[in-house]
Structures are given as structure tokens and as C-alpha cells.
């Protein structure tokens, strides 16, 4: 039986009573997309920051197994090791591309940075990789030397994804990746994401308040409220047969468009 690559037990980070993230258990298996849904303030972004090591928990355990099979205790790991993981084994896609891209650096430089960070010193190879990943996320490779500030929102988000995937991470964290985008651009991005997840065998933890995004992308869902996970299950099960009162309310509030 395949083991989870990320495993959290009792993960807790409390800023104030019911603020933050309380006693969360979560497993992520290779190749699956786990969605975290809930209203703003429900603790889903805190949970994402804890899982990705951007923040340390007050209590609980968290372990990660990288592609080479090495296990990492993300609660006790040193800061240098966690930053190393974040630049290689993790991908972190921010809602706002400005937080995840270097806007004064060319698209190629943005993609190449992680490679250079792990010791790539051959300009030609780095550039070839950048071209490869640009086309992988459906950006015209001819734009390799353009600054991302001249890209549309959807392209910036694609570039952010390419920048993360270049080191072949096993696990990608996404915080509302389709947040600021038009609906048609969203659909195209979701389609790209779904394809990449399958082609590359990466696992994704995605935070969203958009149930439509959750349904299209996530295999499983966690519903959060007041810092706690109140319901989990297969995405279609949670959305079609919600158990908790809050989840029923959340699902009932989805606009029916079709």
C-alpha cells in the first residue's frame, strides 16, 4: 500500500480563541489533489502555511516524504532545511503572482532561479529548461525574455506555476490560485493544472473558497470552520451529500449555473 507523502496529526496554531488552525489531521497521498474549503477566517490559509512550513505549529506532528523517499519532520526541521525543501521538493503558488514572482526579472530568469538555487551553472541548459516549462504551461516560449509585469493575470499565474515545477516538486501548495482571474481564464488555468497534476504525478493541496474550483480540481475535500476541520470526504460526496449543517449551508449557497 502506498504511504502518504504528507501526514499531519493534531496540527494546531492558535492566534486567539477559534482563530487559526486547531487539531487538524490530514494525509496527502501521491498524485492526489486535496482541497481545503471554508469562508475567509476559517483557518484554511493558516493550515496551508503550516503544511508548507511557512509557519510553525504550536502543537501537533507533520511529516513529509520527498520523491527520493526521505522523510522529514516538518515540526522539528531546521529553518535552513525547510527553506531548502520549499525551493526544491515543494511548490508554493500564491494567490497574487506578485508574491510568487520576481517582476523585475525576465520570465526565463524566474523559471531558472530554482535551478540556479540548486546549483545549475550551465546557461544553455537553464534556458532550455525555461523554454520547456513555458510551453508546458502554454506560454509562448518567444516571451522568455519579457518581464512578467507585462503579462496578463492568467499568464503570470502560469509563469508562477512553471517557476515552481522546474525542480520536479512532489507536493504543490496553492492558495486561491484562480482568485483574481476572469472566469474564462480560470477555466483554462484549471485545465492546465489538472493536466500537469496527472502528467507529473504531483500532489496538490489547494485552498479555495470557490466550490466550483474545488469540484473541478480536488479529489478530496476538507471543510473548515472556526479553525477546525468539520467535514472531510470525496469531493463529490461532500458536495452532493454534505453532512454538517455548515457544509450544507455552504453547498446550498453555490450559484447554480448550467
Amino acid at each position: 500500500m502506498v504511504e502518504p507523502i504528507l501526514s499531519a496529526r493534531g496540527l494546531t496554531r492558535e492566534y486567539a480563541p477559534e482563530q487559526g488552525c486547531l487539531e487538524v489531521d490530514l494525509d496527502v497521498w501521491p498524485g492526489e489533489v486535496v482541497g481545503i474549503v471554508g469562508e475567509s477566517g476559517s483557518g484554511k490559509s493558516t493550515l496551508l502555511r503550516l503544511l508548507s512550513g511557512q509557519e510553525r505549529p504550536d502543537a501537533g506532528t507533520l511529516s513529509f516524504t520527498d520523491r527520493a523517499g526521505r522523510q522529514h519532520d516538518l515540526v522539528r526541521v531546521s529553518e535552513s532545511a525547510i527553506r531548502q525543501l520549499q525551493r526544491t521538493a515543494f511548490g508554493i503558488v500564491h494567490q497574487n503572482p506578485r508574491d510568487g514572482l520576481r517582476l523585475r526579472i525576465s520570465a526565463g530568469g524566474n523559471i531558472g532561479e530554482r535551478l540556479m538555487g540548486v546549483g545549475a551553472r550551465h546557461y544553455g541548459d537553464i534556458r532550455a529548461q525555461a523554454v520547456h516549462w513555458l510551453s508546458h504551461v502554454e506560454i509562448d516560449p518567444a516571451r522568455i525574455d519579457d518581464l512578467p509585469r507585462y503579462f496578463s493575470g492568467g499568464m503570470q499565474q502560469r509563469l508562477q506555476i512553471a517557476r515552481n515545477l522546474v525542480t520536479n516538486p512532489g507536493l504543490v501548495f496553492m492558495d486561491e490560485p484562480t482568485g483574481g482571474l476572469d472566469v474564462s481564464v480560470q477555466a483554462r488555468l484549471l485545465d492546465t493544472l489538472k493536466r500537469l497534476v496527472h502528467d507529473l504525478g504531483i500532489s496538490v493541496v489547494i485552498v479555495t473558497h470557490d466550490m466550483g474550483v474545488a469540484r473541478l480540481l480536488a479529489d478530496r475535500l476538507l471543510v473548515m470552520r472556526f479553525g477546525r476541520v468539520i467535514e472531510t470526504g470525496l469531493t463529490d460526496q461532500v458536495l452532493d451529500d454534505p453532512q454538517a449543517a455548515y457544509t450544507q449551508q455552504l453547498v446550498a449557497s453555490i450559484l447554480q449555473v448550467s
Binding site: 529553518e79 525551493r87 525576465s106 540556479m116 538555487g117
Partner: peptide, 22 residues
């Protein structure tokens, strides 16, 4: 300071990369 402490020097090569690209 953190980048120095942890030898995170990938960005230095990004600068040189940008030179060659331009």
C-alpha cells in the same frame, strides 16, 4: 542576512542570467 546564513545564492546567478539573456 538569512540568505547569507543559509548560502541561498541562486539569485546571484539570476542576475548574471539576465545579463546574458539581454
Amino acid at each position: 542576512r538569512k540568505m547569507h546564513a543559509l548560502s541561498e545564492y541562486g539569485v546571484m546567478h539570476v542576475k548574471l542570467y539576465e545579463d546574458i539573456a539581454q
